[in-house]
């Protein structure tokens, strides 16, 4: 049984189908890529899956502890709580908060610190804060960011901002991590680092990763399976090898479609 099951997902923006009839699935602990030319509807599909946009038709269902749950029409925060975390194409950090606070906020739901407990600064408050702090440091150290706890997110270099966004998403303890162009704007060296990191995350946290990426070397190196989107429709699915040899995909990229 798939972890995430997407059936006939469609989104119309006033007559224009940004995403139409997308049927796909994600299994446990796999690394899948979503590729396609600019404007193919990749980010829209991400937004549909994570609840930022409500689909016109179709269903998104996730395997949870309570069985299979239909997620569409749920609020994004509920979907996130069910175990779907994401990053954004145009980095959306809490810019005026510190690195530590950025990660701590993602742990809000896991942290059962009460209102009165924190107002009166009871000893249990300090205990819980210390435990959280420890978790944040551990998480950040995987990304070699443990020395930047008190840096404001806006002051981080670009690559570190992208990494922090991934840490923040991981801090919600997700089942599936959606990465929207994680390598955008990075140089080859940084991209190579990122590739290793994504593999490490996937194996260490046992999660499923779906990533949108334009960097083909990264995609072909990482992905076990690839979905190809063009004009809002899935035109191909398969292993990197299959995709590389697929005539429709080659046409879509080389301008056969233009």
């Amino acid at each position: 049984m798939p972890l995430l099951d997407v059936k006939d997902l469609t989104k119309n923006f006033g007559g224009l189908a940004a995403v139409s009839d997308v049927t796909m699935h994600l299994d446990n602990n796999e690394l899948v890529a979503l590729i396609g030319p600019n404007g193919a509807g990749k980010t829209t599909l991400f937004n549909l899956l994570t609840g930022v946009i409500i689909p016109s038709e179709g269903t998104v269902s996730l395997q949870t502890d309570k069985g299979l749950q239909v997620l569409n029409k749920q609020k994004p925060y509920k979907i996130a709580a069910e175990g779907m975390a994401r990053t954004f194409q145009n980095i959306r950090l809490f810019k005026d908060l510190t690195v530590e606070e950025n990660v701590l906020i993602a742990m809000t739901d896991k942290n059962k610190e009460g209102f009165l407990e924190s107002i009166f600064r009871l000893p249990s408050f300090y205990k819980k804060e210390a435990a959280l702090h420890q978790q944040v440091v551990e998480l950040l150290s995987i990304f070699k960011m443990e020395n930047q706890l008190t840096t404001l997110a806006r002051n981080l270099p670009y690559g570190a901002q992208r990494r922090l966004e991934i840490v923040r998403a991981l801090a919600t303890k997700p089942k599936i991590l959606f990465l929207d162009e994680p390598a955008a704007g990075m140089n080859p060296e940084e991209t190579a680092d990122l590739t290793r990191l994504i593999q490490q995350i996937q194996s260490e946290f046992h999660i499923t990763v779906l990533l949108i990426e334009h960097d083909m070397s990264l995609v072909m190196n990482l992905a076990e399976r690839i979905y190809v989107l063009e004009y809002g429709k899935l035109i191909a699915e398969g292993t990197p090898k299959e995709i590389q040899g697929n005539q429709r995909v080659i046409n879509a990229y080389l301008g056969g479609g233009d």
């Binding site: 925060y77 908060l97 906020i105 809000t108 610190e113 209102f115 924190s118 998403a169």
Partner: peptide, 21 residues
């Protein structure tokens, strides 16, 4: 505190805040 930080995340970026629950 936990609640206060969540409140500040709303000020910073509502869409990002929703995305982490």
């Amino acid at each position: 505190s936990r609640n206060g930080r969540a409140v500040m995340s709303v000020r910073e970026d509502e869409i990002a805040a929703e995305s982490i629950g």
